[in-house]
């Protein structure tokens, strides 16, 4: 119940994030639709539903700018979103704590610098960790490699959550020092239960993200996919917010010197 209450506290931030997300998606959809309409002019293209893939392939191969535009839009979106979510991620922690919306926004803006820097450090460390696991697990069968990469990713996600929670909720004496993220990894690997929960929620969110394009592909032809796409995006966001809200229940964890590792006593009681 306590977790649900905490999650409920983030509802306004969630709604803001949802509106932004859906608006961004709608903008992309509208622009792509206009581009296609402009390209097709008075023509209707291939009409046979059984050849829907061929129809798209033909339009895109004759007009590669369309495919490049959609791809570039997605990449730019990811880059912009990374920055945007850095701020919004901070706001979630403040809101989960019970801060008002304006206060949460202010707190998020004030924490933006450390969140961004630690985010970059985290990205580099995660990349290195995944590379290391790929090399070490390379000779093993594929299933072990996959498992190794999954666990590493889960640890990395938890480490990032820990560092962000620490920055927003308790602050760091040296908020720009990479050691905070390193310490986040060290703490994360010692918490298998939290790793499992984080991994579960993260995989769920990523699963929803990954299924969006195949879902749109499945609906090629006269059927409409946009309603489902938006619903799943909203659900994915909610899962993400729930994970962050849940995290506030067992932070703080000391991520800065003294170097002594944090112990379980440092976490708050958890229902």
């Amino acid at each position: 119940m306590k977790v649900l209450r905490t999650a409920w506290n983030t509802r306004w931030v969630y709604l803001a994030a949802l509106v932004l997300t859906l608006a961004w998606g709608l903008a992309a959809s509208t622009i792509a639709g206009w581009m296609t309409e402009f390209i097709l002019g008075p023509f209707g293209g291939e009409a046979d539903v059984e050849h829907a893939l061929a129809r798209l392939a033909e339009v895109v191969t004759h007009n590669p700018e369309l495919g490049v535009g959609i791809g570039a839009g997605a990449v730019l979106t990811a880059a912009a979103a990374w920055l945007g979510w850095t701020l919004l991620g901070g706001a979630v922690f403040f809101a989960a704590r019970g801060d008002a919306l304006a206060q949460s926004a202010r707190g998020a803006v004030q924490s933006a610098g450390p969140l961004a820097v630690q985010g970059i450090v985290h990205a580099v460390l995660t990349g290195l960790a995944l590379l290391l696991v790929s090399v070490v697990f390379g000779p093993l069968p594929g299933v072990f490699r996959l498992l190794g990469l999954l666990v590493t990713t889960a640890v990395a996600v938890l480490a990032r959550d820990l560092v962000r929670a620490q920055i927003c909720l308790h602050g760091l004496d040296k908020p720009y020092h990479p050691r905070a993220t390193v310490q986040g990894f060290v703490v994360a690997v010692k918490r298998p239960r939290e790793i499992a929960i984080t991994a579960g929620l993260w995989v769920l969110k990523m699963g929803l993200a990954l299924v969006l394009v195949p879902l749109a592909a499945r609906a090629l032809g006269p059927s409409e996919a946009s309603g489902w796409l938006r619903l799943m995006a909203g659900l994915g966001l909610a899962i993400s917010f729930a994970r962050l809200a849940w995290l506030t229940h067992w932070v703080p964890v000391e991520l800065e010197p003294p170097a002594s590792a944090p112990d379980d006593g440092a976490q708050t009681a958890e229902t």
Partner: peptide
Amino acid sequence: AREVTTEGDIADLAEAAVLAALLGVAP
């Protein structure tokens, strides 16, 4: 009036790609 199958398909794919990118890097 013209059917908009191709435009609709490409619009859906673009929206899916962007939403996937947004959700993929979501907090």
